[in-house]
């Protein structure tokens, strides 16, 4: 048995060390907000935070998360909430499938950068594919999240 801490909750699971976190989270624990897109860390749909760092859960083994705090799209953080609000205001998603990963990557960006430029956004978000093509809205929404945050401060 292994213990994973996800969004502040503990889960006991019995899987091999080498199982990718993505499948432990989706199929064993049953949190389906984290998405499968490519399986080889090419698309970012499966992005999660481990101790605040954005990783691709399809290519990260369960063993790497033990004793650490995992945040998925079902979780919360101050920057994630500003981003959610901005995503809603700008009406970013189309099919919505990649947006869990987009929001997680954007959270990691805002956690490390107070006011990212378009270039910062492009650099951080380039690993997240959106086949529907919502990129210009994603850029706009990240800037808007910064505004919302500054309004609060």
């Amino acid at each position: 048995m292994k213990t994973l801490s996800i969004n502040g909750k503990s889960y006991q699971i019995d899987v091999p060390d080498s199982m990718p976190l993505l499948w432990a989270i989706r199929d064993i624990i049953g949190l389906t907000g984290t998405k499968f897109g490519c399986g080889v860390a090419q698309c970012g749909a499966c992005s999660i935070l481990i101790n605040g760092v954005s990783v691709r859960s399809c290519s990260t083994q369960v063993s790497q998360a033990i004793g650490k705090e995992v945040t998925t799209i079902e979780g919360s953080s101050p920057n994630l909430e500003y981003l959610r609000k901005a995503w809603e205001e700008i009406n970013v998603p189309q099919c919505g499938y990649c947006q869990s990963g987009q929001l997680i990557s954007a959270t990691a960006l805002l956690d490390s950068s107070e006011n990212p430029t378009d270039e910062d956004i492009d650099r951080m978000m380039n690993g997240n594919i959106c086949r529907c093509g919502t990129y210009t809205r994603i850029r706009k929404a990240i800037h808007r999240a910064v505004e919302l945050k500054n309004e609060k401060l």
Partner: peptide
């Protein structure tokens, strides 16, 4: 989108 909140919360 009528599904916007579901999209942003997984």
């Amino acid at each position: 989108s009528i599904d916007i909140k579901d999209f942003t919360t997984g």
